[in-house]
Write a protein that binds this DNA or RNA. Structure first.
Length: 575
DNA sequence: GCCGTTTTCGGCCCGACTGTTTTCAGTCG
């Protein structure tokens, strides 16, 4: 690899290696070890390539001497010798076949050894020619399944995920309706929606009820529910009109806590939780905690964690990123809450591409209980919506001053979201920027620069003492656009040096910084700003998704700059 | 292959579902 590979690229290579080992029949624990390492590499907030060069790769959980050496080899030579060797024996086409649901490593191996399948094309021909029937264990159903998967295309296994905002809107509405049902005892949203992940594969609802049949009937009748594929006393499976699968589980009230804990996940969190429990002689499942043949059930989640010797863990932290150890030691952070926010420092008005006036936005912010709102319309070279040329920005400053005279306690800050040009300059003169209360800078053009160029570009903007915060620092759109090539370690370093703040943009499509990067930035001492980037009064409420990301990033109120009064916040800046 | 509130060696989460091997291995979440 000639340039520095990203964590995701390194992780992909180890995922592939894990599958190759799996196809080769290696012991499952070795395979699991590679998958665990791949996940740690993918989720590292700092560059694993850089860590490896510093000889620090083994600091990653699940990365030991062997895998650290393989990372190093990958960086030096562009490939992992063990993978090259395996590929001589195992066609890489088999790796693709394992992505077909129902076809795991054992059965794919069998296809290879029995009838010489080496690729998806081979598999298609074999089914068409009826040769699958020669393979023991492959009946009519298996052939049907393979044909269906092939018909859906290579990406069949990668179903589109639903953005958290959409999943939550549906899930919360359903839960609210179900709670209103007379037989409802407890109803909670579980799964990735409860953990506030970026996106959700499905919705999980856990309920305790006095009349399961009536409750399931009510579930079938929910406005959001389209098709119900299975229903019984234990729950139901359905799909919403948007095609989002919903899983309802009905459980006895006395073990509601066990089930809620189990179905909230994540899988990794539960796995780590159970591994640790086994060492204390406890066996955890969704039905209870078994100890010496006795199964203890828990009505609430707190009791589950308490029995395992730790404090209750907020769902946003349940990703096996150190939360279990912290909970055992009583070291969990006091996560930032939406009520901690005292201001919003990124919003738009009709001056650029917003839908409301300064006054309307200010009133809406005041109604949300905020003390200050920065109006930060797009700058002169924005390229879509209305431009705000320097003269117009000066008029906006006057407008803001007038609104402040007529308004109650909320303070409107005159600001801008100025463009970071390809050379790192911003597109207003310093004289004008100096007249503003608050300057947001961000990238909206020339996304396809090389990583060093993009990093240099953003660092250069941070060097300008009048730039207070970098908005949506990676430019990602969840599920639609990858982050632009950028070295976040370099950006964080520059932020520390220049006292520039970094934003968690709360737009549910962005949530940028991500939880991973926000955690890394805060660890490095960078203060984080959580902004709505509202383009209308109603989207000021989007800060909830920014708070969700911040909580997933382990941030406390102190880590978040806009939990402070405006006077305290302005003192944090690099000006 | 990794790791240490039983361990530097010997373990490594738990249960449901599926298809088809009539007793369970493989796969999945």
């Amino acid at each position: 690899m000639s340039r520095t590979p990203k964590n995701a690229e390194i992780a992909d290579r180890f995922e592939e290696l894990a599958t190759l080992y799996e196809l080769d029949g290696a012991v499952v624990y070795r395979v699991v070890a590679y998958r665990t390492a791949a996940k740690a590499i993918r989720e590292s907030g700092v560059s694993v390539a850089e860590m490896s060069r510093q000889g620090r790769a083994e600091e990653l959980p699940g990365v030991g001497k062997t895998i650290a050496e393989k990372v190093s080899a990958l960086l030096d030579t562009g490939s992992i010798p063990a993978a090259d060797k395996l590929k001589l024996r195992i066609p890489v086409g088999l790796v693709e076949i394992t992505r077909i649901p129902g076809l795991g490593p054992k059965r794919v191996r069998q296809l290879h050894s029995e009838i010489g399948i080496e690729s998806l094309d081979d598999l298609r021909r074999a089914v068409e020619e009826g040769r699958l029937e020669d393979v023991p264990g492959f009946g009519a159903k298996a052939q049907e399944n393979v044909l269906a998967a092939l018909a859906e295309g290579a990406d069949a296994a990668q179903r589109p995920r639903t953005l958290l905002s959409k999943a939550l809107a549906l899930g919360e509405e359903m839960v609210e309706c179900l709670r209103a049902h007379p037989s409802a005892v407890r109803v909670e949203l579980a799964g990735s929606a409860r953990r506030r992940a970026d996106s959700c594969k499905d919705l999980d609802i856990v309920a305790a009820t006095e009349d399961a049949d009536a409750f399931v009937s009510a579930f079938r009748e929910l406005a959001a529910v389209d098709e119900v594929s299975a229903a019984g006393k234990a729950g139901a499976k359905a799909t919403t009109h948007q095609g989002l699968p919903v899983d309802l589980r009905i459980v006895p009230a006395e073990s509601f806590g066990n089930l809620l804990q189990h179905f909230t996940g994540s899988g990794r969190h539960n796995e780590a939780l159970r591994t640790a429990a086994v060492k204390r002689g406890l066996h955890v499942s969704e039905y209870g905690i078994a100890e010496d043949g006795t199964v203890h059930t828990c009505a609430g989640e707190e009791a589950v964690y308490a029995r395992l010797g730790m404090s209750w863990i907020p769902p946003e932290l349940r990703e096996d990123r150190g939360e279990l150890e912290a909970a055992r030691k009583g070291d969990l952070p006091a996560l930032v809450r939406i009520d901690d926010l005292r201001g919003d420092l990124h919003s738009h008005t009709v001056a650029s591409d917003g839908r409301n006036t300064v006054t309307e936005m200010a009133r809406a912010a005041a109604e949300r209980g905020l003390e200050y709102l920065a109006v930060t319309d797009h700058s002169a070279t924005h390229g879509f919506g209305n431009h705000v040329p320097p003269d117009e920005l000066r008029r906006q400053i006057e407008r803001v001053a007038k609104v402040n005279e007529s308004l109650g306690s909320l303070r409107v800050l005159a600001g801008t979201e100025t463009n970071i040009l390809p050379d790192g300059a911003v597109d207003y003169d310093d004289d004008l920027l100096a007249e503003l209360d608050w300057v947001v800078a961000s990238v909206h053009t020339s996304f396809r620069m090389s990583e060093p160029e993009m990093t240099k570009r953003i660092a250069a903007a941070m060097e300008n003492p009048l730039v207070d915060v970098i908005a949506h620092p990676t430019g990602r759109l969840i599920g639609r656009r990858d982050p632009y090539a950028i070295d976040m370690d370099g950006v964080i370093e520059a932020a520390v040096r220049t006292h520039t703040l970094l934003e968690i943009n709360a737009n549910p499509n962005r949530r940028d910084l991500s939880d991973i990067y926000a955690r890394e930035a805060a660890r490095a001492g960078v203060k984080i700003v959580i902004d709505s980037d509202a383009h209308g009064a109603e989207t000021l409420a989007n800060v909830r998704y920014g708070i969700a990301t911040a909580r997933r990033a382990w941030l406390t109120a102190d880590d978040v700059a806009n939990t402070r009064s405006w006077e305290d916040l302005r003192a944090l800046r690099g000006r």
